[in-house]
Design a binder for these strands. Structure first.
Lengths: 241, 241
DNA sequence: ACAAAAGTGTTAGGCCTACACCCATGA
DNA sequence: TCATGGGTGTAGGCCTAACACTTTTGT
């Protein structure tokens, strides 16, 4: 561990952190991963003990290749979730001079989308928990604000890249996909129009799981055509609602 | 001036800078404001002397309220241009561990749009100059990359907010407006469709400067209806091309 | 006189929106 | 048996894209 007072600069330097907004979807509602502060042993985290907060932590100046690496590393350390650096999208910088009572800390917020089912098992339930969007507790620092900005960013991004693949299980139904979009955009769509629109993109393939459908009451199952999905993601995509 | 070695931290801290991408438009092409490094007296800038770079500089940990304030302050100091903090839009963070040879420096890039004519007079020509997009010299650090990202961000943003007001002179012509859009989006439009589209937004009013037009060869002059322009800017806007 | 610049309006096609009926399940 | 959930197709309107001619100026 570093000796106190070891690092000396000619001019004042701020501390820099990365915070993570991790979105998941449980088939009904959008969820966000939060941690309870102060339970970790990290001596640098002595503010807002006991409060809920976004996972995140300090840039390792000597080791983190980019600030996105900080996000990935800290998320892993604090929640157990192991994501790839490229799963993180930068949301923005929060740099208000008084946002941390201890010293000047600027943070770069990043969001990530995960398949909830796959990931709940990996989450360290001692420190971290998933919250519904409508059920977020009061958060430490300016994390409420960060969360709102991240959410509105997701809301924008969904118009330009398909987003279901990251959030839904491998196999899903059209009503699930629609509900996901409705949760993120906070609106309701017409069932038929939504289905038509999605089918035009040709990224959905029906999954035949052998069960003969005896009625329309049980929804059809789909998975994404990864090839077309990726092509769409790269070639640009415009979804109007 | 700060005494060497005055600022001490328990953990290593990075330096943080704000860089500015200032776009202008001269009626023909998009321009970018650059500075020549090493001419200023700031002792902290001893790398890449003599090269062109984006204006920008270090966060003043004790005084800059946000990183956008750093951008505004440094732009003023380095080029003479005085912009308001809210004229800056955050582009993103560039944090690669080796992007500055001296120490770990992460930068938050910001772009701004200015009326070139009004502003050229204020620009300190000793240190700063305007370059056409197609005529950018080699830049210091990773500023080439930052510039490319900022430009593609502007390209995106133009679909969601009207952008002419900031870049064009008070009075302008439709061909100028179209050329501006074509310069930013790097495409060509049909004259008639462009005019129709713009007129539907009802943000253009004809300016009657007394001169009776004797032919169609001289374009009509317009100015923006500020009220409708702002309403559009706030209420969201969707421009398809 | 000819090329270049600018103004103007119409039509066809595609996309979005609104909308109704049928079937099967579960209460 | 009735309410609920899910699947499916069509017609109208709006927006977009394509397109031609006239005027005047500058060479």
């Amino acid at each position: 561990m570093a000796q106190k007072g070891k690092y000396v600069y000619e001019y004042p330097h701020p501390a820099v952190t990365a915070d993570c907004i991790v979105f998941g979807y449980d088939g009904k509602a959008l969820k966000i991963l939060l941690i309870k502060r102060g339970l970790e042993k990290d001596a640098s985290s002595t503010a807002y003990v006991g409060e809920w907060a976004l996972p995140g932590g300090f840039l390792d100046v000597e080791k983190d290749k980019t600030i996105a690496h900080t996000a990935a590393r800290e998320l892993k350390e604090e929640t157990g979730l192991k994501l790839s650096v490229k799963d993180f999208k930068e949301v923005g910088t929060f740099s208000d001079i008084k946002r941390d009572p201890r010293e000047r800390v600027i943070t770069i917020a990043h969001y990530a989308l995960v398949k909830l089912a796959r990931v709940q098992a990996d989450t360290d339930a001692e420190k971290a928990d998933w919250f519904s969007w409508n059920d977020i507790p009061h958060l430490a620092f300016d994390h409420d604000k960060i969360l709102r900005v991240a959410f509105s960013r997701l809301k924008q991004d969904i118009h330009f890249e398909p987003v279901g693949f990251e959030l839904l299980p491998e196999v899903f139904t059209l009503p699930q996909l629609q509900n996901l979009y409705e949760s993120i955009l906070e609106v309701k769509f017409d069932r038929r129009n939504f289905a038509n629109k999605m089918k035009h993109f040709e990224i959905l393939s029906e999954v035949d799981d052998g069960t003969p459908r005896r009625g329309t009451r049980t929804p059809l199952k789909y998975h994404f055509d990864k090839e077309n999905y990726d092509r769409l993601k790269n070639s640009g995509f415009q979804l109007e609602f």
